[in-house]
């Protein structure tokens, strides 16, 4: 029991992000509903972003803005880059949802297996 507690205590956010990434991948492999697939892939994307954010993490570092002494600053690169990645992720998910609406209206199903049988060609 103590060993388990020790194991959980030393888990970092990065480890959880990796687990979350593969949970998302599992969801994309198993869920037949399109909307759940989109959610799973969104989870993968967010997990990857979290993982990137936590790289070069230092306990007690302060935000990299003017006024902070350079030696106390957190690494600014992951934060700057991940803002871009978050924006990209949001727009891709938005586009996927828009396409999802189209497909559902057109074929009347949100299930990959049924959908594939209703395609025109």
């Amino acid at each position: 029991m103590e060993a388990l507690e020790y194991f959980f205590r030393q888990l970092s956010i990065s480890d959880l992000a990796v687990v979350l990434f593969f949970i998302g991948l599992y969801g994309a492999m198993t869920q037949r509903s399109i909307i759940k697939t989109i959610m799973s892939i969104g989870i993968m994307d967010v997990a990857a972003i979290t993982f990137f954010m936590m790289s070069n993490f230092e306990q007690g570092a302060r935000s990299p803005v003017t006024g902070t002494p350079p030696e106390q600053m957190a690494d600014p690169v992951p934060q700057a880059l991940m803002i871009t990645a978050i924006v990209i992720g949001v727009s891709v998910v938005a586009m996927c949802l828009a396409m999802y609406m189209r497909v559902v209206f057109r074929y009347g199903t949100a299930d990959w297996n049924i959908l594939i049988r209703r395609l025109e060609d």
Partner: peptide, 15 residues
């Protein structure tokens, strides 16, 4: 999109 999630993860490891 799945491929790109892999890519971000890979870039993060690389970083």
């Amino acid at each position: 999109f799945i491929a790109m999630a892999f890519m971000v993860m890979g870039i993060a490891y690389m970083y």
